[in-house]
């Protein structure tokens, strides 16, 4: 289990994990590093990982574009949620967390992972027993979320003032919106190629 967790951590330094990590990190920042949102992000990643291992869903063509549009809307809603926070803080915070989970879940459907020894063993094993590989993929997906946890902790350690929180949230969501808009526009391949070249140049 730890080997899967550790391999996932190492994979987060590779371009292939960026499409999963970027939206999750964006949502962690937009939600001001709240634990509830981080928990929802982890749940979204794990559920997406289970689907990946079960090999029952693969988005392509218009489905990718639709999912991109969905993420644009979700990030937008999460961004404007604080505006109504005074009306009902708890409900708004819960809604933001749910949106963070949804965005991360969709991002796992965009994800084309680097398949190292551990993930390879999980995928190979899943051909005969998906259920038997769920603990392994759960550990793996939680490993991919370690950088998101680091971001959450940085946000909480800095604890920016409310006036600083807003521009940080806008900047982060801008990155997320660019990624999601590229998916919605059907530019998945160009986006991944660009991210790959940025991170490997």
């Amino acid at each position: 289990m730890f080997a899967s967790f550790a391999e996932a951590i190492r994979a987060t330094t590779q371009p292939c994990t960026l499409l999963l990590l970027l939206p999750a990190i964006v949502m962690a920042i937009v939600t001001c590093g709240r634990w509830l949102a981080f928990a929802a992000i982890c749940v979204g990643a794990v559920l997406g990982g289970w689907l990946f291992v079960a090999n029952v869903v693969a988005l392509d063509g218009w489905q990718l574009q639709l999912s991109g549009a969905l993420v644009v809307i979700a990030i937008g809603l999460a961004l404007i949620a604080p505006a109504v926070r005074q009306l009902n803080w708890a409900a708004t915070s819960g809604a933001q967390a749910a949106l963070a989970g949804v965005v991360t879940f969709v991002a796992t459907l965009w994800w084309r992972p680097c398949i190292g020894a551990e993930l390879g063993a999980i995928l190979t094993g899943a051909r005969t027993s998906v259920a038997g590989e769920l603990p392994g993929i759960t550990a793996y997906m939680l490993g991919t979320m370690v950088p998101v946890l680091a971001v959450v902790l940085v946000v909480r350690a800095i604890d920016p003032s409310p006036t600083a929180t807003r521009p940080i949230g806008w900047c982060a969501s801008g990155v997320g919106l660019v990624v999601a808009a590229a998916m919605a526009a059907g530019r998945h391949d160009e986006l991944v190629t660009t991210l790959t070249r940025w991170t490997t140049s």
């Binding site: 967790f5 550790a6 391999e7 951590i9 190492r10 490993g143 370690v146 946890l149 680091a150 902790l153 940085v154 909480r156 350690a157 604890d159």
Partner: peptide, 17 residues
Amino acid sequence: VAAVGLVAVVGVIGLAF
């Protein structure tokens, strides 16, 4: 607590590598 947690996370990442 967040700062200590961050140090721990960095340690876990280092261990993974």
